[in-house]
Amino acid sequence: MTLMSKCSRLSKPIALMFTAMLGIAAVPANAADGGAQLKEQYTKAIEGKTIAFLPMTLGAPLMDTWEYVIRTEAERSNMKYSVKDPAWNSTALAQAFEGAIADKPDVIIVQNPNVQLLVKQIKQAQEAGIYVIQLSMMSNTLSDGYVGGDWIEQAEVTGKDIVKQCGTGSGKSGKVVILQGELTSAQNVYMTNALMKEFAKDTAIQVVSSQATNWDATKAYDITTAVLQQHPDVCAIFGPYDIMTIGGAQAVKKAGLSGKVIVYSNGGGYKEGCDAVRAGLIDRYMDWDAWNQGREVMVMAKNLLMAGEPPGSHSVASFSSYFWVTKDNVDQARCTDIPKKS
Rank of each mutant, 00 (worst) to 15 (best):
A236V: 04
W215Q: 03
G259N: 02
A96W: 01
I14L: 13
W215P: 03
V277C: 05
V119C: 01
A251H: 05
P28S: 09
F18V: 10
Q41H: 09
A255P: 05
Q250M: 06
V234G: 02
M286R: 12
T336C: 06
D64N: 11
S320P: 07
N188I: 14
S170N: 08
V252S: 08
K219E: 06
T50M: 07
V27L: 15
A204P: 04
K302T: 12
D161G: 02
S321R: 14
A128F: 11
V132A: 05
Y81K: 07
L22V: 09
A92Y: 08
R76T: 13
L118F: 10
S265D: 03
N114K: 11
A200R: 07
V297H: 11
S185A: 14
S90Q: 07
I205A: 05
K341R: 01
T141F: 02
C235I: 03
P13W: 01
L195E: 05
A194P: 13
Q332V: 09
M298H: 13
K164E: 11
A307D: 15
W288G: 06
N193I: 14
L10S: 04
S185I: 06
G294V: 02
L304N: 07
A96P: 04
Y190C: 08
K327L: 02
K201I: 03
A217S: 07
M244Q: 09
G247R: 00
V261K: 07
V115Q: 13
N266H: 12
A204R: 06
V299T: 15
K84L: 03
T57A: 13
K120G: 08
M4K: 14
I162E: 03
T336M: 10
K340Q: 12
A20K: 03
K39A: 12
G247L: 00
G267I: 08
R76Q: 15
V147N: 11
D106F: 02
A251K: 00
D106A: 07
T192Y: 14
A60M: 11
V177D: 01
V277P: 06
I178F: 15
G48V: 08
V325E: 12
M56F: 11
N329T: 09
M286P: 00
C274M: 05
M300N: 12
S320Y: 08
T19M: 10
P55T: 11
S185H: 11
M191T: 13
N214R: 01
F319S: 06
D331I: 04
W215E: 07
R71G: 00
N78Y: 09
M306R: 14
R71M: 03
G267L: 09
D106Q: 06
A128E: 10
F238W: 13
G239F: 03
M63H: 11
K253N: 04
L10R: 04
G23Q: 08
A249T: 08
P310N: 09
W291V: 10
L257Q: 09
Q211E: 02
K80A: 12
L195N: 10
E153R: 14
L22N: 09
S136T: 15
V208P: 02
G167K: 03
D161P: 04
N112Y: 03
T225H: 02
F53I: 11
D161K: 12
I178T: 09
G99I: 09
F97P: 03
F323T: 09
Y221V: 01
T141L: 07
K197P: 06
E75L: 11
K39M: 10
N78P: 02
F18G: 01
M63D: 01
A249L: 05
R284D: 06
G256W: 04
S318T: 10
L58I: 05
K201P: 04
S265K: 02
I338L: 02
